[in-house]
Each structure stands twice: as C-alpha cells, then as structure tokens.
C-alpha cells in the first residue's frame, strides 16, 4: 500500500495530466457536435453581454466600412423602389396582393463577437429566440452570405460562419443549372472553394456565385462571391472553383437572419418522402 502511494505521489504530475485531459477532451468532443452544441459559448448571456460592451469600441473603428456597405445597399434598394420606375399605365387602382405571400422574412441584428482566424469560425449576434431566431436559419450580410445559426439563447445567437469545416452551402454559378457544395479549406478567409461542378461548364471569368435556392435555408440568388479561378483536380470530371467571397468578414457589423415561413411545411413533406422510401 505504501509502495503504491509512493508510486502515485512520485508520478503525481502524470496522474493529474490524465485526469484533466479526460475532462477537457470530453468537453472538446461533446462540443464539436453540431446537434449537441452546448450552451457554454459566446451566445451565453454573460459572455455575450461582455462582448457587447467591448464591441462598442470596435463598432466605432469600423464605421467607415460599414457606412460604405450600407450606402451601397441603400442604392440597390432605391433602384427597386416603385418611385424609380416610370409608370406608363393610365388607369391606376389599388390592388391587394393576394398572389405573393411572404416566404422569407429578415431579422436585423448586430455582430457582437466574431472569429476569423481559427480553422472553425463563429460569430455571435445580439438577437436570440426572443426575436424569433431558431437553430439552422440562414444568415446573410449586406454584401452576401455569412453562415448558419448554430446555437440560440434568449438574447444572443452564435452563427457557424461559412469559414468552418462543416459548413456546406449548396451554391451555383449564376445562370448555370449546376450546383455543388461550398467548402472552406482553412487557408485564406477571403476565398472559398465551390466543388462538384461538372467541367463541361463554360466558365466566364468574374461570374457571380449565388445560392442555389435548394433546401430550406437560403432564398435563391443570394450573392456569395465572384469566381476567381477554376481548375480540375487530379484529372477528374469536376471543377474546383476558387471563389472570392463578397462578404468581408473583417468588417462585418450587421447581419440579417433569414426566416423561412414555409420551412416546416417543406421539411415535413421531405421527411415523409424519406420514411415512405424506407418502408
């Protein structure tokens, strides 16, 4: 017994290493699971609150860039206003629009924390379940796509950004029928790779890469970026297209969370399909 005790106390550092390593690796593995994501992260009330305070300084420093992108967005919205079109019809009457039902709603929210430099990056925003945000909603910024809602508390949500190894957003080249998943290879936060595009596609330089509208998260045609260069990997029949992101993650301050009003309906239908195939 004494010998055992001597042995343990002689190598006590090693035993402490084992104990704490087990604790921390358990946390690490548990937390890595998208579905089981725990609440101990920056969408937590306390930490989110601290970040919101510190963010006041950051917001001030980025005012120039934010103003710039908001002004650009204003112009594009102005261009869509009714008043900027010439109306050449003679008879006018008010029509209650019953054809178009609102499918996507946008929730404005402010970025209070973000990471860009890790292999897997997240953003924290200051709107949560109170504003109607749920896990799995899409998030876009004034210039383009940002990520997917990962975890939600009452007042904050964290977003798994497009710069994450598990984020796969189905996207396509504007005007072409082909689509494929978008991957970040972890090197440069300004570039992502669009894979699985058949190489018979005649790719124009500077073509726009947009969301495909498949799935329930993003509407069709949200800008992701611009084609930088394309290459065939290892003589395969698919192109790996390098895309320059239109979202500048260094400067992003405001984002819009997309709420799809028909998400449940579409998902229920698709789940029912899967079940009937399995039977």
């Amino acid at each position: 017994m004494i010998n055992l005790w001597r042995f343990i106390s002689r190598f006590n550092a090693f035993f402490f290493l084992i104990i704490y390593l087990v604790i921390s690796i358990t946390l690490l593995i548990k937390n890595n699971d998208f579905q089981k994501a725990s609440v101990y992260n920056s969408s937590n009330e306390i930490i989110g609150g601290i970040y919101q305070k510190v963010n006041i300084v950051n917001k001030y420093l980025n005012l120039n860039l934010v103003n710039d992108s908001l002004a650009k967005e204003n112009i594009s919205l102005h261009n869509q206003l009714k008043s900027s079109f010439l109306n050449d019809s003679i008879v006018t009457k008010i029509v209650t629009d019953t054809i178009n039902k609102v499918k996507y709603e946008y929730i404005l929210s402010e970025v209070v924390n973000k990471s860009i430099t890790s292999r897997n990056n997240y953003l924290t925003i200051n709107r949560g379940s109170k504003a109607g945000i749920k896990k799995g909603m899409g998030v876009i910024g004034p210039n383009g796509i940002v990520g997917i809602v990962w975890n939600v508390t009452k007042n904050f949500s964290s977003i798994q950004s497009i710069l994450h190894e598990d984020t796969r957003i189905t996207s396509s080249i504007e005007g072409s029928p082909y689509f494929g998943p978008l991957i970040w290879e972890g090197k440069d936060p300004n570039y992502v790779t669009l894979t699985d595009i058949p190489n018979q596609l005649n790719l124009k330089p500077k073509a726009r890469v947009v969301t495909s509208g498949l799935g329930v998260i993003f509407p069709k045609g949200v800008l992701i970026g611009i084609v930088d260069k394309a290459g065939v990997k290892g003589g395969g029949s698919f192109l790996d297209i390098s895309v320059k992101l239109s979202t500048n993650f260094y400067a992003i301050e405001y984002v819009y969370v997309i709420k799809n009003n028909y998400q449940t309906e579409q998902e229920t239908l698709e789940d029912a399909n899967k079940e009937s195939v399995n039977d």
Binding site: A13, F14, F16, L17, Y20, L21, I23, S24, I25, T26, L27, L28, I29, K30, N31, S38, Y40, N41, S42, N44, I47, Y51, N113, S115, S118, N120, Y122, T124, S158
Partner: peptide, 19 residues
C-alpha cells in the same frame, strides 16, 4: 475557450502544457 466558442480546446492544450 468560453470566449472563443471552442470549449475544451484551449483547456486540453493548457493541461498538456502544464505537464
């Protein structure tokens, strides 16, 4: 970790560092 959404990652590295 709590501040960077990587629960357990820095903790693991730090425990190894301590050893």
């Amino acid at each position: 970790d709590l501040f960077s959404d990587t629960l357990g990652l820095h903790a693991t590295a730090c425990v190894i560092l301590a050893f």
